[in-house]
Design a protein around this nucleic acid. Structure first.
Length: 879
DNA sequence: CGAATCACGC
DNA sequence: GACGTACGTGATTCGA
């Protein structure tokens, strides 16, 4: 097998990665974005190139031999940001873990090391590959020497062979230095010839071959100006050539033999990845699928007792409890066991032991016995299934972690622990495996792992609470999220009744209509194809039927609804495809999707609300998602007819906040006009239209109101001018003008927007009325897009997040009132700004009153909160 | 199995 | 002027 040498320009790749990736930092607050980018590049090289020899070269110090030629070399360069320079030691550590050699040489740059090494390898007939982001390296390209340059980011690279260089730039490798001599390079402060760019340089080199030849034949140059410039800057040009030339005979001390590469030890790399927080890269390491138990072995030992009979003196009144279950779906999942940890010791209680124990149940249900858990809602629902009504949960590690930083993706006990510098436990993946390979291990392995998790909760509780207090978020945690978990748990456990017959009926009807449509579409297309495949559909529409292409995606033609809508009149097939899409969505997602998750016995659906996921504080809903049941189109809205009360003579109840986000905006921005509008109960979109278009209310056309509504929508959701232009079908310019006029009309809103962005830049985060936080590290990004996005997020999150806070509080208040006042009514769902309940008919009036009272008064803002109410025999009818 | 595309809600 | 555009969940297709 032929040998292959890979040479990596360490400095260049790190710089590229640093500027290409957002300024990520890991759990310890150490910046790792450049190292991360470097690592993905490295993994890719190892996988694709399989080098027999490998070296990463770095620049040595500040000065190089080139400074003797030209003291201004690399002058005027911005100092390396500290966020980057602190990552250099990490990269060296990384290379150590991979067993990869790195090298630097005083007075020389990485280029020179690479050039020298590459020459040596060439003489040995070795294949060479150079990886860099610096075009200068292209001078090394040769037969057997390829240079890969990063294009965008770090993993997107372009490979240069002599042929490709010729084709792409139009010059030979040996002309690269001549080209740079002519063009100069501002980043290295190499002067070159002023006014000569790539075009001219290539032209000259094609004509004459080298810099020397150009100057020998100056009289043949077309253009007086150019000739003059060349004459005037001859010295600069030759000095530039010298500077740009890579030294291929640097006095390097490493030999090819020193840099053979024999692979790495997975364990070392995995350990470092975990330390750096590179969780997403773990599975790219060979042997990283945790078949081996090397990790668990390296942990400190932990002692625990296996409980065979629960006695009440096991508990202390302040106990960490961990309920283990592998399934996501805790309503249906199997409890594998419990761990209890307190100041007296560590205990594992097998499921049957705990569930058959009176003492366990009594302890769990005793409100005075404090429990510290992970995911209170999960524990609550799973135990309700076992007829245990757990009370007294005073700490939830999941919710606390979510409040501390919702941007964190890994809210599991081991990850949270690691962020708190507590390492005495393994990841679930390591113990249980993942995906199809997931399995329950031996009893002892599992029980020890579960005990370790409870132990982590017990050990870390106080410092997590301290952190919440420090951030002034303790109230948010203890008065909002924690009690809400109990309310949500009850809702999930109770479930929503579904009329499956109705769903089946609608499904049958849809099926027929879809079949007919399908045949008609095939007929019009002249062939049958998969309408659900954007690729095949694109082929039919834009190639076979030659319809105009409106928009393209990365992979082909766009067939999104807004595109198809524009083609509606162009071909008979279009309306049919649009209808097919609409009905297909109803069939697959809503009819079939819902039927799949209806509990066969009860005919109920038990959705799960994710309370620790969204960046804004909203809830989300899964399996199924009951927060996106159709409503806009009548056809889809009928799905709601299948959601019915669970008892006879009961009704479905819905109370929704009217314009809660805009009211919140009026309040936090303190905009007088907006506050005034809400206090006078005006139609806010009409009012906005009046102000933006400067007309009286009787002159507001429906189109003006529609546009004003879109602007309000944009303000609330923090969309860009581009986003607004898309939703209104206008140009970006017009959209921008719209937004500006809006701000002129509501100066208080404008002032708020400016203020909140300033605040975000200062603090690094924004907050809601209940002190929920969202960190916005990218608000200082040098990348326009990232920064703009962060700015819009800064404006939007306090609005959406505060609205989320308010409805959460309303839910807690309402649940308390329903219980205190002995309502039979039950909360079923929350859909961001509305609450859905079911109740006996005789409670309707009393419930309406209570519901409105609670929802409208749960907080006091500078504007009134308004709630609309409806009820009916099905969710559909509660409108 | 994951990425890409599409579509539904607020 | 860049570049990809509120937050989510889920279905489907398709290529590695």
């Amino acid at each position: 097998m032929s040998e292959k040498l890979v040479l990596v320009d360490g400095n260049s790749i790190l710089y590229r990665a640093f500027f290409a990736l957002p300024l990520l930092n890991n759990e310890k607050g150490v910046y790792t974005n450049a190292v991360y980018g470097f690592t993905t590049m490295l993994l890719r090289i190892l996988e694709e190139e399989k080098p027999s020899h490998l070296l990463v070269a770095f620049d040595a110090g500040k000065t190089t031999f080139r400074h003797k030629t030209y003291t201004e070399y690399k002058g005027g360069r911005q100092k390396t940001p500290s966020e980057l320079s602190e990552q250099f030691p990490l990269v060296k550590e990384l290379l150590g873990a991979f067993d990869i050699s790195h090298y630097e040489l005083d007075q020389y740059e990485a280029d020179d090391i690479i050039g020298t090494m590459s020459n040596e390898a060439k003489q040995d007939d070795m294949d060479v590959k150079v990886i860099s982001g610096d075009r200068d390296l292209l001078q090394l390209v040769d037969k057997g020497v390829n240079v890969s340059l990063t294009k965008k980011g770090v993993t997107n690279i372009e490979n240069y062979t002599p042929e490709f260089l010729e084709e792409k730039v139009g010059i030979r490798p040996d002309q690269v230095v001549d080209m740079k001599a002519l063009m100069g390079d501002s980043s290295d402060n190499i002067p070159g010839i002023p006014g000569v760019g790539e075009k001219t340089a290539v032209k000259l080199l094609k004509q004459f071959g080298t810099l020397e030849a150009i100057y020998e034949n100056l009289d043949q140059i077309n253009g007086k100006k150019l000739k003059e410039k060349l004459e005037n800057h001859k010295d600069d040009a030759f000095m530039s050539k010298e500077l740009a030339t890579i030294n291929r005979e640097s006095p390097i001390k490493v030999k090819l033999n020193d840099i053979t590469y024999n692979g790495y030890k997975p364990q070392r790399v995995l350990e470092l990845f975990k330390e750096l927080g590179f969780h997403s890269l773990l599975n790219r390491i060979e042997g990283g699928d945790y078949e081996t138990e090397q990790e668990t072995n390296s942990l400190e030992e932990i002692e625990y007792r296996l409980i065979e009979d629960v006695k009440s003196d096991l508990f202390s009144g302040k106990d960490a409890l961990f309920l283990e279950m592998l399934e996501e779906h805790y309503y249906y999942g199997t409890v594998l066991g419990f761990a209890v940890v307190n100041h007296k010791g560590n205990y594992f209680i097998p499921t049957e032991v705990a569930l058959n124990s009176e003492a366990f149940k009594a302890w769990a249900e005793d409100e005075k016995q404090e429990k510290f858990v992970f995911d209170a809602k999960r524990v609550t629902v799973a135990l309700k299934r076992q007829e245990i009504d757990i009370k007294g949960i005073s700490f939830d590690m999941l919710l606390a972690s979510y409040i501390i930083n919702p941007a964190e993706n890994h809210h599991d006990v081991p990850s949270i622990s690691q962020r708190m510098d507590f390492y005495n436990l393994s990841y679930d993946e390591e113990v249980y495996g993942k995906g199809a390979k997931q399995k329950v291990p031996e009893e002892e392995v599992m029980s020890e792992h579960v005990v370790r998790k409870a132990n982590a909760i017990f050990q870390l509780k106080d410092s997590i609470v301290d952190k919440l207090k420090e951030n002034d978020q303790y109230h948010l945690y203890t008065d909002l999220e924690l009690p809400l978990a109990a309310v949500l748990g009850e809702m999930e456990y109770y479930g929503v009744q579904v009329d499956t017959d109705r769903l089946n009926e609608m499904g049958a009807e849809l099926k027929e209509r879809l079949n007919t449509l399908e045949q008609e579409i095939y007929e019009l297309a002249g062939e049958s194809f998969n309408i659900n495949s954007p690729k095949q559909l694109g082929h039919i529409l834009f190639e076979k039927l030659e319809l105009p292409v409106i928009k393209k995606t990365k992979t082909g033609y766009s067939t999104a609804a807004d595109v198809l809508e524009q083609l509606k009149d162009k071909h008979e097939i279009m309306p049919k495809i649009l209808l097919y899409r609409q009905l297909g969505k109803l069939q697959s997602t809503y009819i079939e999707g819902l039927l799949k998750v209806v509990d066969e016995g009860e005919q109920k659906i038990h959705t799960r609300f994710n309370q620790a996921l969204t960046q804004t504080g909203r809830l989300s809903s899964t399996e199924p998602n009951l927060q996106n049941i159709p409503i806009r189109l009548e056809e889809g809205r009928k799905i709601r007819q299948a959601f019915i009360p669970s008892k006879e003579d009961w009704v479905i109840f819905a109370g929704d906040y009217s314009q809660i986000e805009l009211r919140v905006l009026a309040h936090i921005a303190g905009d007088e006009k907006l506050i005034d509008a809400f206090q006078n109960n005006l139609d806010i979109h009409t009012k906005t239209a009046m102000d933006v278009f400067k007309v009286d209310d009787d002159k507001v056309t429906s189109n003006m109101r529609r546009q004003a509504k879109a602007v309000n929508f944009g303000i609330v959701y923090g969309i860009s001018d581009y986003g607004l232009s898309q939703s209104l079908g206008i140009t970006r310019k017009e959209a921008k003008a719209f937004i500006e006029t809006y701000f002129e009309s509501f100066p208080g809103v404008k002032a708020y927007m400016d203020q909140i962005v300033k605040e975000a830049k200062q603090n690094g985060y924004v907050t809601t009325i209940m002190n929920r936080r969202r960190y916005l590290p990218e608000i200082t990004s040098r990348n326009f897009n990232r920064r703009s996005f962060a700015e819009r997020t800064a404006m939007n999150t306090p609005i959406q997040g505060s609205a989320a806070d308010i409805i959460k509080k309303a839910m807690i208040d309402l649940a308390a009132r329903l219980e205190e006042e002995n309502f039979e009514a039950k909360l079923l769902l929350q859909v961001h700004d509305e609450l859905i309940l079911e109740a006996p008919k005789h409670e309707i009036e009393r419930l309406q009153q209570t519901l409105l009272e609670v929802m409208e008064n749960t907080v006091q803002l500078d504007v009134p909160l308004k709630v609309d109410f409806a009820c009916g025999d099905t969710w559909f009818d509660a409108k």
